[in-house]
């Protein structure tokens, strides 16, 4: 019973940690827009956490510049299990308009497992919310897999 309660809760209180790996700030603003009264992601339990140790979902935006790559990987390692990685916008997925630059190392899935990708430049808040919600469901699956 106790385990079931924990499993159920896993998808209902996903805390986000947002990493900007060289993004133009567009996606970042849209992510914050999700928390505003108009979209109100908090009704699903989403909350922005201040440190990776508290996070369930890590949202990565930006094309993974070479300066930020190492920091990104280190921070991702510090998130406790079960965790999800969501790539936000087209940049971490493909490099977008920065592709081919000497200082850009996209895509993100070269360095870690990405659970959900929300594409778009920038994605709409509705799309972001859907992506995050999917990530929350994946969290629950991961938690169940951890305690089989």
């Amino acid at each position: 019973m106790f385990n079931k309660l924990i499993n159920d809760s896993a998808s209902k209180s996903p805390w986000l940690y947002h990493i900007n790996s060289g993004s133009c700030n567009g996606c970042d603003i849209e992510l914050v827009a999700c928390l505003t009264p108009r979209y109100d992601a908090e009704r699903f339990g989403f909350k922005l956490a201040g440190t990776p140790r508290h996070a369930d979902i890590v949202v990565v935006s930006g094309p993974v510049t070479s300066q930020s790559k190492e920091r990104l990987i280190r921070t991702l390692a510090q998130v406790p299990e079960p965790k999800c990685v969501v790539s936000l916008g087209s940049c971490p997925k493909s490099g977008n308009v920065f592709k081919g630059s000497y200082s850009v190392e996209a895509p993100l899935d070269d360095y870690c497992h990405v659970d959900v990708s929300v594409a778009g430049c920038t994605p709409k808040p509705e799309a972001i919310m859907e992506g995050l919600y999917k990530a929350a469901l994946i969290l629950k699956e991961k938690r169940e897999a951890m305690h089989k």
Binding site: R53, I73, T75, A77, Q78
Partner: peptide
């Protein structure tokens, strides 16, 4: 790095 103190990624 998982067990290192969090230094904003540094």
């Amino acid at each position: 790095p998982k067990y290192a103190t969090f230094f904003s990624g540094e």
